[in-house]
Simulated scan of single mutants.
Amino acid sequence: MKQFVCLLVLVPAGFLTGCSQPASVNGVVPVTGTILHKGQPVAGATVTFVPNLEGRACSGATDENGHFEVTTLQPGDGAIPGRYNVLVAKSEVEGALSEDEALEYMKKHGKEPTITVKDLLPIKYKRRSSSDLMAEVGEGEENDFTFDLID
Rank of each mutant, 00 (worst) to 15 (best):
L36Y: 10
E101S: 07
E69K: 05
P81F: 01
P81R: 04
T114E: 14
I35P: 04
V29D: 06
F68Q: 00
H109S: 00
T32W: 00
H67M: 11
G140L: 10
E101N: 05
F49A: 06
P51M: 08
L121S: 05
T62K: 02
V117R: 11
C19H: 09
V88N: 01
T34P: 00
S130Y: 10
S130A: 13
A61R: 09
M134L: 11
T32E: 07
R127M: 15
V50D: 12
V93G: 02
T72S: 07
L97W: 03
K118Y: 09
A61P: 00
G76W: 06
A57Q: 14
N65L: 12
Y125D: 03
G138N: 09
V47G: 05
L36D: 11
E139C: 07
N52L: 15
A102R: 12
L8N: 09
T116I: 12
G33L: 08
M134D: 10
V29M: 07
G66R: 03
L133N: 03
A43C: 08
G110S: 05
E112M: 11
G33E: 10
G55V: 14
G82W: 02
R83P: 00
G60L: 04
L53R: 10
G55A: 14
G110D: 04
N65I: 05
Y105F: 10
H67R: 13
D119S: 07
S20V: 14
E64L: 12
K108S: 03
D132E: 15
G60F: 03
D63M: 03
H67K: 13
D132W: 03
I115A: 06
E54F: 15
D63L: 04
L53V: 15
G78R: 01
K126G: 01
A102C: 04
Y125V: 03
A79Y: 01
K111W: 01
S24Y: 11
K111C: 03
N85P: 00
C58F: 05
D132L: 09
L133I: 09
G55F: 15
L121E: 05
R128L: 15
D119W: 00
S59W: 07
Q21Y: 12
K38G: 08
C6P: 00
Q40T: 13
V50Q: 13
S98F: 04
S24T: 12
C19I: 07
Y84C: 01
C58M: 04
A13P: 01
V42E: 01
E64M: 12
A89N: 09
V50K: 09
A23S: 12
L8F: 07
Q21W: 07
